[in-house]
Structure formats: C-alpha cells, structure tokens
Write a protein that binds this DNA or RNA. Sequence first.
DNA 1: TCTGGGGTCCTAGGACCC
DNA 2: TCTGGGGTCCTAGGACCC
Length: 400
Amino acid sequence: MRSHQPLWFHVDMDAFYAAIEQRDNPDLRGKPVIIGAMPGSRGVVSTCSYEARTFGVHSAMPISQAYRLCPDGTYIRPRMEHYSRESAKIMEEFYDFSPRIIQVSIDEAFIEMTGTGGIFGPPEQAAMKLKNRIRERIGLTITVGAAANRLVAKMASAYQKPDGLTIVPPGTEEEFIRKLELKDLWGVGRKSRQRLEELNIRTVDQLIKIPKDTLGTLFGRAGGEYLYQVCRGIDPGIYDGQIKSHSISNEHTFGIDCKDSQAVEDTLFALAHGIVFRLHRENAQSRTLVLKLRLGDFSTSTIQKSLDHPIRTVEECFDLALELLKSKWDRRNPIRLIGLGFSNVEGTEKVQQGELFDDPEDRRSKVEAAVLELQKKYGDLPISKGRKFIRGTDPDGDGR
DNA sequence: TCTGGGGTCCTAGGACCC
DNA sequence: TCTGGGGTCCTAGGACCC
C-alpha cells in the first residue's frame, strides 16, 4: 500500500447563525442581521451577517455598541436548537467525503482527506465539490482551508472569507504564515500580543527569529513551545481528540446587579438543577464543584471544593454551592454574574455498585432519575416548580 | 465601548507522602 | 536538627477559543 501525503480540510460556516436566518427568511437577505442579545439588555453579538460587518459590528461586541453602529439592523435572539439541527445535516454531508470528521464547534469541523485523491481529485477540486454540495443541499456557503496538518488548515480557512478557499501546499507552511499578522496565529490572543509588542516583536518574521529557550523563559514552558511551533506551521496536536478532563457549567448574568440573597440563592438553585441533570443525562459524575462570581466592577473569582465522593443530587450540589457562596460573598457587594460548574467530570463506569447501597443520597439520586424521565416525556419543567417538586419529594422528610 | 455563555488548557503554590 | 527531591492532588487565577 502506498503512503499518502497527509491532507486536512478545515471547514468554517460563513456567519452561520445569521446565514441560516437569511436563508429561512428572504426579507433578511442583503440586510444587516445581528444574532445575539436584544438591544437595551446586557449581552453581546453572537454572530452577524456580512452586511452588518460593514457597519463595524462583529462577534463578541457589546450589543449596546452594535446598536449605536447599526440602529436599523434586524436583531434576532439565537435559535440554538434550529442551528444545531442544521449543523448536524451539514456534518452528514461531510461524511460523504471522508469517515474522519472532527467537529470542533457548531459551525466548524476538520475533515481528513488523506488518500482521497483517487475519488475527489486534487485538493482544489475536492474542496470545490464540498462547497458546491453544501450550497446545493443546505443553501449555505462555507469556507475551506486545506493543508498537511490541522493547525495550518485552520489558519488557512481564516485567510479568505466568506465563501473562500485557501490551499497551503506541503512545504510552503512557513511562507504562508509569514503573510499573516501575529493576531492571526491561532492561540495568540490580546495578552500574548501585548507581551510580544513589549519585546518589540510585531511580525511573524520577528517571532521566528526568537530562540526556543527565550520564548520558554518569557511565556512558560508550554507557552514558549507552542509559539515556537505555531509560527513555523508545526501542529502541536490541536484537536487530537485527547480530552483529559471535562467540565459542565451553567452561569447567569443578572439584568441588574443583584444583592438580594433570596434572588441569588434562587438563581443558584436553578443552576445546580441544570448542571446535576446534565450530569445524569451524560451518565457522568464529579466530586468537584466550582462557584464563580463576577461583581459589579467586573472582577471575577472562583472558589471550588472537592468532596471524597461524587456529587449526585441537586440537594447536595445546592448545599455545597451555598457553603461556597457564604465563604466568598459578603452580601454588600452586588453580584453581576453567578456561575456553578462541575470539573473533572468522568464517566460513571468507575462507580462501584456496592457503595451505592444504604446511601441516603442514593435515594435522592433515584428520585432525580425519575424526574429526568418525566422531563424527557413532558419537556422541561419550569425551574421554580422544579425546586418545589424536588423538595416536595424529599425522601428523608427532614424538610431540607 | 462596557463587556454572554459555554468550554479547554496551563501555571504556581501548598499539602501531603515516600 | 536541618535538610532534599519527586510525585500526586487540590486550589485559584488567567489566557484563549467559538
């Protein structure tokens, strides 16, 4: 069997949420469409159409600012379920081109095209077939980057958008990357760029000249190694599917900063409910709970606690969350955002059945499994009801 | 400008054990 | 009495990505 030159495509859907809304509603085509929070509320732009971008609007921009720049735009709340279904349809199409798909977000995926030349032709041809397929069957445009590894394919897809195609032939990686700005390097954000600028490094050319040891001293061992590789087009192994740990979290930003303990606790309960039920749904478990607080001045802190056993019930999770809240919040400081999450989430294979017996928490856990079944049947119960419901079925009858 | 919500990965310090 | 190195786990914070 002959060996093949590795070939990866990175596919990015163009202005995905906005493009779906424009496809579904012809009145919106050719117009600025902004998906995200509603003007007047706290929140940001999630995605916007290319027409909106000509006004200077972009992702992650505060919605208030977007509204000032583009008051006549159409503002739409995201319809995530709809977008997820469209995303799944697109992924299905990708499987006709290769069995190796790595979906990295709702609107992005890697496709390994190594050895498919005999079927789809050279990279240009294969990419055009893929783009045509998605346009014809889904009605959306995509941008494709092609290279010998995922890191360069990813940066190639960002090079020309929308409806773009950039191919970086093997051996020309460094030449391609030299055309980019530092901010275009994947994994180099605002802070790293600032630090590089302090050192008078403003271009990729300048970065390539810095010895690996020096980068290590400046950015830490892992950070230095990463920078050394990324500017040379060497893939350190991004998205290799090796997920070491996993976390599940929910957070909520109050419309107005909140110092009403009852309101804060109610929100905390809803968050606990959300993450515990997701844990059950994923058949997973965790011993570590993380509470996140963001105050009125936007300062953010977290506090976490690990137990010697998995947290399995909403009650246990909520009680622990309250304990963390009490230790971190002095009640005079209004809260902007409160978040709750599990970290170090693992699959439940490791649970020893024996230790579940005679455990009072286990009965609660079973009650919650039953509630989960009901929710599957009848849809999500309102959270406020959920709190009463679960407390009302308290198997210990101790009123907690 | 006035900043969502969901994540992953890394660092550094401290506790504890051998 | 003062001293070391390594490993593992936990915690808090921060950079970055979509």
